[in-house]
């Protein structure tokens, strides 16, 4: 019914005329924009940018105007139309670190904020610097081919910084040219058809 809630989805794209059609895909998730269109329109600051560059969604504060979803060029904000229900026996399957959202609020990829906060606390408690690769989001953790990388771009020695530097001719942002969103998610063009993909 168009009311599914996916925090990351695979977008298909077709290029060329029949019969020379190329199919490509990109994983589409919240881009955690530096200049996010959704943040400025929320009347109650439910969509806010945090100090560490996340685009946070505060479910308790959200009143469900759905204006942020209209204004998101990536269509990654999912409105919760139905009150989630589980049989009592299955409630133990829910992630204890993540609050269950009510009907009537906007949801989206949080970049696994519960893991980020946990890593923050671990680093603070054990009084050591953050080790690269210590923190992985759920999508990074579960991707079998290692196509997704999560890390600290401010740290020049991290895997992701080296990757972006090394592959700088292949990096691109989605939607930045049209909407000036300054996304925090960086994509790499496929090596074979870097030209064909375009923007």
């Amino acid at each position: 019914m168009g009311r599914m809630m996916d925090w990351i989805r695979i977008e298909r794209m077709f290029h060329g005329e029949y019969p020379d059609i190329q199919t490509m895909f990109v994983p589409m998730l919240c881009q955690h924009c530096g200049s996010a269109p959704c943040e400025s329109v929320c009347p109650v600051f439910a969509a806010v940018g945090t100090h560490d560059g996340l685009n946070a969604q505060i479910y308790n504060r959200c009143v469900g105007t759905r204006l942020c979803a209209n204004n998101c060029p990536y269509h990654v904000r999912m409105y919760n139309f139905v009150q989630p229900k589980w049989p009592p026996s299955m409630e133990l399957l829910l992630n204890p670190d993540v609050s269950v959202r009510n009907e009537g609020v906007m949801e989206k990829c949080t970049m696994c904020v519960q893991r980020i906060r946990r890593a923050d606390l671990d680093v603070k408690v054990s009084k050591r610097p953050y080790a690269d690769g210590e923190l992985r989001t759920a999508c990074v953790q579960s991707c079998p081919s290692g196509a997704l990388v999560f890390g600290d771009l401010n740290d020049e020695e991290s895997t992701i910084s080296k990757l972006v530097k090394h592959e700088s001719n292949r990096t691109y942002y989605i939607g930045h040219v049209e909407y000036h969103t300054a996304p925090n998610v960086i994509y790499l063009r496929p090596e074979k058809n870097a030209e064909a993909l375009g923007e």
Binding site: G2, Y79, E103
Partner: peptide, 8 residues
């Protein structure tokens, strides 16, 4: 809100 016709 599912009783309305709205959807993405």
């Amino acid at each position: 809100f599912w009783v309305t016709g709205l959807h993405i």
